[in-house]
Design a protein around this nucleic acid. Structure first.
Lengths: 131, 131
DNA sequence: CGTGGTCGTTAGCCAAGGTAATGAGCTAGG
DNA sequence: CCTAGCTCATTACCTTGGCTAACGACCACG
């Protein structure tokens, strides 16, 4: 089971469209898009890296106009990071490509197999959330 | 489905024991352990990187006594890379820890759910191999 | 034998992860 | 109100790892 997950995840990553963004940049941008907006510390937590790493990655994204920074409304130490419209587009494009690949693969399965995977997805979701 | 795979893979990665090896080093060592022995080019192909990257990672592993290099028996340009006994131990330890985490999660499921996942694993394996 | 191709390594560049340090700002207690 | 402790983001530096380009050694074929 573990091997299958690992291999499929690797395969999904290869379904990614070629992007000018690096893996870390895309991951950070995706986290921002999902959350709407985050402080650097929150983003570091979400990506499981230390804050200086976020500073660097976000600087690159900001330089490309994909992320915008605004002062925190109540805390002068903080910054609010959010994706720009352009940044959101990139995340959606990436997501669509990967979903399309998997959807095609699923379409090639029998209804029975699809049902199995639908149920398995629910179970895997539960496991992923465990502890 | 895709989200479940991604999240579970991330969760599995977190079940990894803390190691003095980096992700790339561990990945390369694992590929070597699985194959028994590989040339740098073969390892580069397995890891989907270019050969100079392999040269660097393997140099680090060799420095730690986890990989050994021997001349190719028939081709003076090539080298054979193989894990040392110590290197093999590290791969097995890592694998055991991740398998243990997943096994525990699976033990908490109902027999019906486990059956679903068993069948799903087979399907996912097929998908991962597709194209 | 000569040429083209393959192999592994080296050099240089860029990205990203970490730790340590720093300055700005906030909060709580005296 | 003031101060000490804490939090936050950033900068600096180091290490790792990915890439491309270049190079020398070696192999295979005509």
């Amino acid at each position: 089971m573990r091997g299958a997950i690992t291999r499929l995840n690797r395969r999904l990553r290869r379904a990614r469209p070629v992007s000018e963004l690096t893996q870390s940049q895309l991951s950070a941008l995706t986290s921002l898009e999902l959350a709407g907006a985050l402080t650097p510390k929150e983003l570091a937590d979400a990506e499981r890296v230390q804050p200086p790493s976020v500073t660097r990655t976000v600087a690159a994204l900001e330089g490309r106009g994909l992320v915008q920074r605004t002062p925190h409304p109540t805390d002068g130490r903080q910054v609010i990071l959010a994706p720009t419209e352009q940044g959101r587009e990139i995340v959606l494009t990436d997501r669509k490509a990967r979903d399309a690949w998997l959807a095609q693969r699923l379409a090639e399965l029998s209804p029975d197999d699809r049902d199995t995977l639908r149920r398995a997805a629910s179970i895997l979701e539960r496991i992923a959330r465990a502890e």
